[in-house]
Write a protein that binds this DNA or RNA. Structure first.
Length: 633
DNA sequence: GACGACCCTG
DNA sequence: CAGGGTCGTC
């Protein structure tokens, strides 16, 4: 078994390098969807929303990144699209490979067009109108402009009654109208060929304008992502939830935001506030029978095939099928090589067991709180975020809850705007009847309600693309507790730092609500890691001496060496993480330190290792920023 | 005395 | 990996 896989860098395996991906952010969307797929596939909402959804899905590296949409970006594209719309020359026939005979593009020629073609044109214009300005936007300030445009269009094409009718359709009918577009095959005469070519050209221009918009949005996204990496203070956003929500609608803090965008932003905020019961949204848990937990582990464990299948599902599939950006999934832990069934997890549960004996467990509730960011947010652009805090309520929650597999946010396969809850709430010891109330999977716990709420949001987003600004930044935090994933993350962090400070731990476990116990436990973890590390070093150093090694130059640590394999197996059991070269260097230095000390018989001193510890402590390196992402693993 | 690191044990 | 004991530091 080759334990050193140079190509399995953490950047490429889980997130992808941001810089590398930057150029291709939208390619999957446009290369495939924009030109190849029929527009009917976007019938479930605005095309922009759908495209954003797909595009975002292709950019998983931007998870949890702050994002804001500058008004200039919107204005640019809107202007382009508006002009395209007002050209009144677009049609979906442009995408048809069949081609049709040309026709005159003059008003006279248009009048000669068949009613059928006119109807199609009207529908296409309607689609474009949906893309350019949402009904919500029209309601709040663009209505005059839209109506004027519509009136101009009608005046220019008096004969287009169909067009008139379509443009007056209420928003819920617009979707169905747009869905009809590509279902009707073209049947125009050959006289329309020139017009169609021109319309084809116009439509492509509109598509390109949308492409530019998306590129602009994603550049902004990346820009903010990089600027905010080290600045975010989660605690600031967790307090004063409702007050902040209220304040948010009147306070905008975008550095480069212009009035237009701020107005839209506040409008969306107000809309969210009205339509969502933001704070204190409690969903009652529904306990499931004990047998379901104890005797049906397959219900809790996703097989590899299942997981692949789940991950293969696109964001569109999930979103359209369920209308929600939050899904549950079996905990990654159970799919890893560390444990293959709940019963395998035993040793790490002592804390939980200890607590559950003193804390009665009643049916839990899952609180979903969508928060607008605090006005005290240190970074102005962070005010474009919504925080969705998942919090267990309703009964004493065993704390710390390490080993209990609380739902956690994970980098989703669904897209950056779609967050999922992974894991299950289940008693760590299924045999304990006192914990049956926790024996509910997240699926059964609350997701139907969550879906409803998120479905509302998504529906809003479909009608108003601007709300995607907020969707993109929904973040989910569990309130407290360390999960097996946190342990795995800590082990990987050990490759960089053997002596992390509590501040470092807090920084790199942003989804953990720190208290004294949590901090101690994390520190204890690293203490255990060090213990294993130094034991291995001493063992191999002594073995080298026994083997007759006389020069430390003969003691190197490579990815093929037995020492590295032992360490890698301990900290990176799944071997899905590319251990940094620096760790090999530190390991080699440590090995040499032990060798030299033992050779000098310093080990007769009871505290002979302390000098080595001091040396190794200084070799700590910075943990990559990527580890700050709670769903990094 | 609180806290953390280390050591040892299970 | 957790718990308990010891020791050093503040």
């Amino acid at each position: 078994m080759n334990l050193s896989l140079p190509d399995q860098s953490m950047h490429s395996s889980s997130e992808g390098c941001i810089e590398d991906d930057k150029a291709d952010v939208m390619l999957p969307c446009f290369h495939r969807n924009m030109y190849d797929e029929p527009l009917a596939s976007y019938s479930n909402g605005s095309i922009i929303s759908q495209l954003l959804r797909k595009t975002i899905h292709s950019k998983r590296a931007l998870d949890e990144s702050p994002f804001y949409l500058s008004s200039s970006a919107v204005a640019d594209c809107s202007q382009e699209d508006q002009s395209s719309v007002s050209s009144k020359d677009s049609t979906v026939e442009a995408a048809s490979p069949s081609g049709h005979a040309p026709t005159g593009a003059s008003p006279e020629g248009e009048h000669a067009m068949s009613d059928h073609l006119q109807a199609k044109r009207a529908r296409v214009e309607n689609i474009i109108r949906v893309m350019v300005g949402s009904p919500n936007s029209r309601q709040h300030g663009d209505s005059e402009r839209s109506e004027n445009e519509a009136r101009d269009t009608r005046e220019a094409r008096e004969a287009y009654r169909e067009n008139k009718r379509k443009q007056r359709l209420p928003q819920h009918q617009e979707h169905s109208a747009s869905a009809q577009v590509s279902r009707k095959p073209g049947s125009s005469s050959s006289d329309n060929c020139n017009t169609k070519d021109e319309e084809c050209h116009k439509l492509k221009e509109q598509l390109h304008s949308m492409q530019r918009l998306l590129r602009h949005l994603q550049e902004k996204f990346l820009q903010v992502y990089h600027q905010e990496e080290a600045e975010y203070d989660r605690d600031e956003t967790e307090v004063g939830v409702e007050r902040d929500i209220l304040e948010e609608s009147t306070e905008s803090h975008y550095i480069s935001a212009e009035d237009d965008f701020e107005r839209k932003n506040n409008r969306v905020a107000a809309e969210c506030k009205d339509r969502i019961k933001v704070a204190d949204y409690l969903v009652q848990a529904r306990p499931v029978p004990k047998q379901r937990i104890c005797s049906s582990p397959e219900m809790q464990i996703s097989t590899g095939a299942e997981r692949k299948s789940q991950q293969a599902s696109s964001a569109l599939d999930h979103s359209q099928a369920e209308g929600v950006g939050i899904k549950s999934r079996s905990l990654e832990y159970y799919e890893s090589s560390e444990a293959h069934s709940p019963q395998d997890q035993t040793e790490a549960l002592s804390l939980v067991v200890r607590n559950e004996e003193t804390l009665p467990c009643a049916p839990g509730t899952l609180s979903i709180q969508l928060q607008y960011p605090s006005a005290r947010q240190p970074h102005p652009r962070a005010s474009s975020q919504i925080w969705a805090t998942f919090q267990l309520r309703g009964s004493p929650l065993p704390a710390p809850v390490y080993g209990q597999n609380l739902p956690r946010l994970s980098r989703p396969a669904l897209g950056d705007h779609c967050y999922e809850i992974q894991g299950h709430i289940q008693p760590p010891r299924p045999s304990r009847s006192s914990l049956l109330s926790w024996g509910v999977t997240v699926d059964n716990l609350c997701l139907p309600h969550v879906k409803i709420e998120c479905g509302e949001l998504q529906g809003m987003a479909d009608r108003n693309p601007y709300i995607w600004v907020f969707f993109l930044n929904i973040n989910v935090n569990i309130q407290e507790g360390l999960t097996p994933s946190h342990l795995k993350k800590a082990k990987l962090m050990f490759f960089y730092t053997r002596y992390p400070s509590s501040n470092v731990l807090k920084t790199f476990f942003p989804d953990v609500k720190f208290n004294r116990c949590i901090t101690s436990q994390l520190i204890k973890w690293f203490s255990n890691f060090r213990e294993f590390y130094y034991i291995q070093m001493e063992k191999f150093a002594r073995q080298a001496i026994v083997d007759g090694v006389t020069d430390i130059k003969d003691m190197s640590v490579s990815r093929d060496s037995e020492l590295f394999r032992a360490l890698n197996m301990h900290y990176n059991k799944a071997n899905d993480f590319h251990v940094p070269d620096r760790f090999l260097e530190v390991a080699e230095i440590t090995l040499h330190e032990f060798y030299n000390a033992i050779s000098a018989t310093k080990d007769s001193d009871p505290s002979w290792k302390k000098a080595i510890y001091k040396v190794i402590c200084k070799l700590d390196s910075d943990v990559p920023e990527e580890f700050k992402t709670s769903s990094y693993l």
